[in-house]
Amino acid sequence: MTIPRRPEDITPAWLGSVLGTEVTAVQVTAIGTGQTGATYRVAAEYPAGAGAPPTFAVKLPAQDDAVRERVAFGYLSEVGFYSEVCEHVAIPVPSCFHSEISSDGSDFVLLLADMAPAEQGDQIAGCSPAEAALAVEALAGLHGPSWCDQRWCDLPSIVMPKPGDAEAAKGLGDIAAMAAGITLDKLGGSVGDEDRDTLTTSMSLVGPWLMAVPQRFSLMHGDYRLDNLLFDPDRTHVTVVDWQTIGVGLPARDLAYFTATSLLPDDRAGVERELVERYHTALVGYGVTDYDAETCWHDYRLGVLQAPLLTTLGYAFAASTERGDEMILTMLHRGCRAIRELDAIELVRSYQASTPSTG
């Protein structure tokens, strides 16, 4: 059967065909308000004794055709993650029952386990240190099993520049500087002078930043933050979703992006050393060697430029919404403050002299 394009295309016949069992009825309801994709909860009914799950989460492209075409590569990345990557890593993700995508990426479907009653993190409210500890340990389950494994550099659905690609690093650096300018123009006086300066300066250094330590890499989530995490009600388990920005790069970029944007700044400053140590211990548990705790802390400081990079890239070329603007302002302020407190700009500049061609 064809890939469902709209929620009304998720019929009993379609669901039954991909599950390999008879489905007598479905009820489809929207989950969330994703701007680059659409997610639905599907309640299914079966003949007696079928034994199939009663509910699923189904991801489809954005219902706006213009958005659908613009982010098709992200759809290719997410389907690629579930079909080619997830079985090789240990990060907790929903089980995938079916995935399918068109050749151009504009139509796709993911049939995933329904994680209810797990609750989505709140990017604006921030998380507790205990929730952050769960998140950083889960993240090590992506980085550790893929640590410095060259095969992932050949994955066709990689979004970010591959380690050591100077031309691609410079290209993303140019886009980052442009995105920072567009973001500041859109937000106007809502961004304070100190954050404005930090954002502009850090985004002007993205080229040399990407080239700083290409010898350390792993698979990256790319957008590892609270809105993409589902916490069990008792806060003992976390599940990671939204894999449209998968890449290969310095692992601690994911780590620093999470702590910088998802913790309240005072909380982050008080617990980040402990969180980095917890993450490093988890990496060692996955067999990562020749990577000591102080090098991990160095990479964490370096990686924090991921916060304004992803924030501005995501915002500059998207339509503004009230919650979206508030979230971006919150993430930018938290990220820029972390950059200053971790002295990350000077750390990048210390590498810039040895990679003048990227800056």
Rank of each mutant, 00 (worst) to 15 (best):
L219T: 04
E167D: 13
P54I: 00
G164F: 05
A212Q: 07
G314K: 03
Y75E: 00
A132F: 07
Y82D: 03
T29Y: 00
R301F: 05
D232I: 00
T261G: 05
D197L: 08
L205C: 07
M220C: 13
A260Y: 02
P163K: 06
G37V: 03
T24D: 00
G144P: 02
L199S: 02
G188M: 06
R235T: 11
M327T: 14
W209E: 05
D232T: 15
R323P: 11
A179V: 09
R268N: 07
D154Q: 13
A38R: 09
L205K: 08
C148Q: 08
I182H: 10
G105T: 02
M220G: 06
V240Q: 00
G141Y: 02
Y75W: 07
S190K: 15
P47F: 01
K186N: 03
S95H: 15
P4R: 06
F258R: 09
L283W: 00
L134K: 05
L275H: 01
H237Y: 13
C148M: 08
I182M: 09
I328D: 02
S83L: 06
F97E: 04
C127Q: 12
K59F: 01
V191K: 05
R349F: 11
W297N: 00
T330I: 05
G141T: 07
G249E: 00
T289N: 06
G80D: 01
Q123E: 03
S320D: 15
T201V: 12
A260L: 06
A57N: 02
G207L: 08
M178V: 13
V213L: 10
A113F: 01
T289S: 08
T36S: 14
L19C: 11
T281E: 05
P308G: 06
V85E: 01
E322G: 09
R253A: 13
H280W: 15
Q27R: 14
Q215C: 01
G121C: 01
R323S: 14
T330V: 13
D197T: 13
L226T: 09
H333P: 01
S95K: 13
R323G: 07
T295G: 03
P92K: 02
G173N: 02
C86E: 15
